[in-house]
Design a protein around this nucleic acid. Sequence first.
RNA 1: GCCCCCAUCGUCUAGUGGCCUAGGACACCACCCUUUCAAGGUGGCGGCACGGGUUCGAAUCCCGUUGGGGGUGCCA
Length: 475
Amino acid sequence: MSSGTPSSGAPRYRFAPSPTGFFHVGGARTALYNWALAKKSGGTFVLRIEDTDEARNRPEWTEGIVDALEWIGISRDDATFEGPYFQSEYASEHVAAAERLYREGHAYYCDLTSEQIQERSKASGKPGYDGYSRDRGLEAGPGRVLRFRVPPGVTVVDDLVRGRVEFQNDTIEDFVLLRGNGSPMFLLANVVDDVSMRITHVVRAEEHLPNTPKQQLLWEALGHTPPTWAHVPVLVNEQRKKLSKRRDKVALEQYRAEGYLADAMVNYLMTLGWAPQGETEIVPWSQIQAQFRLEDVNHSPAFFDLKKLAAFNGEYIRAMSIDDFVEACAPWLHGDAVPWSADSFDPAVFRALAELVQTRIVTLSEVPALVDFMFLESPTLDPVAWDKTFASPESTSMLRSARDAYGASDWHAESLKTATENCGTALGLKLGKAQAPVRVAVTGRTVGPPLFEALELLGRDDVLRRLDAALQRLN
RNA sequence: GCCCCCAUCGUCUAGUGGCCUAGGACACCACCCUUUCAAGGUGGCGGCACGGGUUCGAAUCCCGUUGGGGGUGCCA
């Protein structure tokens, strides 16, 4: 680590999440910002996963972040991965930096306990630490914390998103650098890591803005020019509160598991706080990357709207070729969660139905419920659908006459439709009404893919068997 | 309490002093299409928080008010 500014060379954007067991959608958006900027500038995306006590025992948390990033297109081969850094094997570097600050007069030791600080604060009526030990000349010692000596004046944070933000230094208390046990605080470690990794751009959520003057002061005291800051607005829920794990569905992994497409998620995330040029917001990543600028990012928090995400996902699903769609469905058609047995699944049948399924879903997880009747011995009857449909006597008559007509009909969707129409006409039913009993008898539900195509695929034997079973049930 | 940020349809946004009678998207409503449900098509509803300035002219600039949010640990 040398002093001076290594401002020459390509920019280095760091993304520094702390592992918490899941990857936050807000974090995903920030990562995407860093990624887009790094790529378009020919710079580097540096992933530095912060270490925590809890995460140290759970390496899968860290792995989860890398996985999630890869899912949204931030490939592990194309990013610089560093970490976990903070507080582990690099702690000595952090302590050394702190001691240097002490030697050079930028920091001092203090022996006040937090109780004593609270008492003093209460007595004076001013919140926080009052700088009691600034000039007491204390040496290092057990139980003594090292505090930063905040200089007088004003700290100006030049922010690419917010512009110029001024902080009066006398509103910043002398914050702790080293704890009483000598271990470094996060804030210090963070800055030292940024310095030693030659980070030039820090793009992160707005919630960190109030801490920025402290970090900038540290950069300067350490003899370096601070990085370019950019604080992007947070994502909020319907109550306009920052998205939280307890209340909101924030795990990126969860959206993946529910059948959201990475491209749709990425596109949607990028429309929060920013908009691509042109009349449509559904745009490929290449265009986003080319157009994205921090200067254009909004200043106000954005509501993470599940409905709009769903709409995006539906659009992306419909835009897929049949081959791609069939392939994307694969994980949802096999495995333990699927209601049918593995050997009764027929890929050719699914393939024939795929086009009809594609316009009817918002997430891939909805696929099985639309096609299950094709692969089950007998359909799973929805009791509500059954009762509703067969409440009227003509439904039974319709079913009976359809059964006879199908027995004699050509087995093609068009002929089956005509046959059904004719049966309906005889009973005074339009096709919409006429097909309902058949649909429920064959598929178990009132809604689903177009019926006659499905009947053709199922085959005469299977269909007649199901109609008979339904008729029997009605007796 | 103190510090900081924010403010265009319900929501996400376009808008950088005249092109704004404020544009698009999601949601919602209606109609068309239709074998259910979707998809698709057409149309509709709906907004510059408020009050003062500056200016020939303000959604856009300034000030204030109100309302939101965030930060304030020997947490990360």
